[in-house]
């Protein structure tokens, strides 16, 4: 048994008694390996007695799960209406320039900080009232 199989087995064991265990399991696998790849899908399918298609269908539906790991740090920038009203589109170019190839900039629709945007999230840290300068600084430190 590979170490991956072992680890995913532990995750399944932790959650399988829950009603509807698949999402909690996928969250933990994504967290552990940075992705839910086809190998993981197969192990989870076997563990929960589902078909691989069932598991793949769920993994591909949700934005939070990715099929391949991206080792780069991620900065999520909110580009929904309220942040647009506060000028997020004017700082995107600066954000992209600061990120280059080193940081992955991802779009998120709403962090619930709509009265103080533009807002961004790095890990569990949130940032508000961003402008060209502060967003660049945030990305450089990511």
């Amino acid at each position: 048994m590979s170490s991956k199989e072992h680890k995913i087995g532990e995750i399944i064991a932790e959650h399988h008694r829950r009603e509807g265990p698949l999402l909690p399991i996928l969250h933990d696998v994504q967290e552990e390996f940075g992705c839910v790849d086809t190998e993981s899908e197969a192990i989870i399918a076997k563990g929960l007695n589902l078909s691989r298609a069932d598991v793949h269908g769920v993994v591909s539906f949700y934005h939070d799960y990715s099929p391949t790991a991206d080792p780069r740090p991620v900065v999520q920038i909110c580009r929904a209406e309220a942040c647009k009203a506060r000028g997020v589109e004017q700082i995107i170019d600066a954000a992209k320039a600061a990120a280059g190839e080193r940081v992955a900039i991802k779009t998120v629709y709403c962090l619930g900080l709509c009265s103080a945007g533009p807002a961004a999230r790095v890990g569990d840290d949130l940032h508000i009232r961003l402008d060209n300068q502060s967003v660049s600084k945030l990305i450089e430190n990511a």
Binding site: L23, P24, L26, V58, Y62, H63
Partner: peptide
């Protein structure tokens, strides 16, 4: 009571799709 964390799908705010998601299915 238990907290279940969503996975970034806006449509899961719709109640039936939320229930599907809670059951571990696609949030349709």
């Amino acid at each position: 009571c238990e907290v279940r964390v969503g996975a970034g799908a806006y449509v899961c705010g719709e109640e039936t799709s939320l229930l599907n998601s809670l059951e571990g299915k696609r949030g349709e």
